[in-house]
């Protein structure tokens, strides 16, 4: 069965042994950790994070209990981490979920295939999951890259115009797309030359993805949950990052400033809001 075959088992014909693949995975993990640590040290993001926390503590109006903090941690995991609730654009949110879960499934199944089924032609469930992860990553990635990327959606640039900020998404697209093509030409077409070509492109993409953490936004998957947790804490302890308090419309409509615009018909005064009314100027 093609859909459960193990693409890594076919690498022996190119002289790549299981030991070499396993060393590559270990080096990739080391590169990711080193890249993130260098990134944190260079941008001083951790220093800023803790200094900002201390600054906001002075503005706090109440002390949060440990149970409240635990509850917020659970909410961050459920909302920001597992369901990407920070995205206001639903299409961007769906694309992000496809990329995130696709990437996790793809990376985990790759590691399982390399360490536990390195020479077996068929790997059953994990062979299938490797394809599912790659397809999810490719679908979400290409959708984001060609339609939803802010350069395309808001800046009006062509989808193929690249910038340094695209390093992460392009390497993800390379890993998933070239991985699927390599697997296809190796398993279905049986073309050694094309399989070797796409495997080489897959390998280059993987090196850029895991070796370029310092320059790409790979680290956001670790920083974002911490920032989301901090934001929830600041909103709950009263400091609110200097934001104004929440108001109810009924409480403020009778204030004197409202009298100055009282003749405006209600349907014109309270039109659709920005988030509910997509811009259509492109």
């Amino acid at each position: 069965m093609f859909i459960t075959s193990n693409p890594f088992a076919g690498l022996a014909q190119f002289g790549i042994t299981p030991g070499m693949m396993q060393i590559f995975v270990i080096l990739a993990i080391i590169a990711v950790v080193a890249g993130i640590l260098l990134d944190v040290a260079h941008k001083k993001s951790a220093k800023y994070f803790f200094e900002h926390t201390e600054r906001m503590k002075k503005l706090a109006t109440r002390q949060l209990s440990s149970s409240e903090k635990t509850s917020m941690l659970v909410q961050v995991i459920l909302n920001e981490v597992l369901t990407s609730s920070e995205f206001h654009n639903p299409k961007r949110r769906i694309a992000h979920l496809l990329k995130m879960y696709g990437f996790i499934i793809f990376v985990v199944s790759s590691a399982v295939l390399i360490f536990f089924y390195p020479t077996e032609q068929y790997a059953g469930f994990w062979g299938l999951m490797w394809r599912v992860g790659a397809i999810m990553l490719a679908v979400g990635g290409w959708w984001f890259f060609t339609k939803l990327r802010v350069d395309v959606l808001s800046e009006g640039k062509k989808w193929y115009k690249l910038a340094r900020a695209d390093m992460f998404i392009v390497s993800l697209l390379g890993v998933s797309t070239f991985g699927l093509l390599w697997c296809f030409f190796q398993g279905v077409v049986g073309s050694t030359a094309l399989a070797l070509l796409f495997f080489a492109l897959f390998l280059i993409s993987a090196v850029v993805l895991f070796g370029g953490v310092y320059w790409s936004k790979f680290g956001h998957m670790f920083f974002k949950p911490a920032a989301a947790y901090q934001k929830r804490i600041l909103m709950a302890d009263g400091s609110r990052e200097n934001l104004p308090p929440f108001y109810k419309r009924a409480e403020v409509l009778d204030q004197s400033t409202m009298d100055l615009v009282r003749d405006i018909p209600a349907d014109q005064k309270f039109g659709l809001c920005i988030m509910k009314d997509e811009p259509n100027h492109y």
Partner: peptide, 26 residues
């Protein structure tokens, strides 16, 4: 349907202002 502003002066004085949203559909 409202917009609230908070202006914090360097002396620590805080002014809160609030107004209705007047954005119209495109």
């Amino acid at each position: 349907g409202i917009i609230a502003w908070r202006i914090k002066f360097r002396s620590g004085r805080i002014k809160d202002l609030v107004a209705p949203i007047t954005t119209k559909p495109w």
